[in-house]
Design a protein around this nucleic acid. Structure first.
Lengths: 127, 127
DNA sequence: CGGAATCCAGGGCGATACTG
DNA sequence: CAGTATCGCCCTGGATTCCG
């Protein structure tokens, strides 16, 4: 993995100006991940909302705005009546699906083991 | 990518009981990522803190607790004086570094393009 | 349909002080 | 050294209402 490792391991420091910081702040949330996953083809607002069980309209709007601002999706107003809005991935957003997919696969593969650890931890230090 | 795609794309829905949900809530934050990245070898609390420029001690403690609860790191109290505490990766935590590394690489590779999009977006809809 | 605006409660997080 | 404890702010996110 290419997480910054200087020549000697004694120098690994995550500096505050590391370019990954603001990016991770923007994209490292589960709704962004799920929106990108659902946008395997262009979809409309309520279509996305329906597919992301549990998301509120406010949060979905904010998530879409941020993804749009970051150049990962495109918002297109359809000349229909009533108006429709279609969201689709840009090449940039498309390229993010691969690393996100890896992470998603990992969570699914290890969900059981993680839950076992959690239960054991909570049992040990019972409050 | 293996994000759930049923036979027809019309059925892609992220159900609230998807096992990835609670996991992503736990791990999809930047400090968890950075802690795992820094723990390429066992390290002590203040050592980790020094390497994660900008993290407060409170947040680092919480992050470490959560990672420990999820079975990704191990906390070991060293019999020194004054006491030292050493954190190290478990195999589970180790296995998470790979997908995290992918994501990190992606952010570094695309940081510039994302910033350009942001500036353009902010310029267009100047408030 | 796809939002924007408003109100409001909870908690995330920083700052600070204290401890074994 | 490696935390815990406490206070207080702000921001996130839910619920609701209104609009083009």
């Amino acid at each position: 993995m290419a997480i910054p490792e200087a020549g000697t391991s004694a120098e690994i420091v995550y500096r505050a100006d590391c370019p990954s910081r603001p990016i991770l702040d923007q994209i490292a949330d589960k709704w962004s991940m799920m929106v990108l996953a659902v946008l395997n083809e262009p979809r409309r607002f309520n279509e996305i909302k329906r597919r992301l069980e549990g998301v509120t309209q406010r949060v979905l709007t904010q998530t879409l705005r941020r993804l749009e601002r970051n150049g990962m999706i495109v918002r297109r107003v359809l000349p229909t009546s009533p108006v429709g809005v279609q969201y689709s991935l840009t090449p940039l957003g498309e390229s993010l699906r691969e690393p996100f997919g890896r992470l998603y696969d990992w969570t699914v593969d290890n969900a059981d083991e993680i839950q076992r650890h959690q239960m054991e931890y909570d049992r040990r230090d019972q409050s």
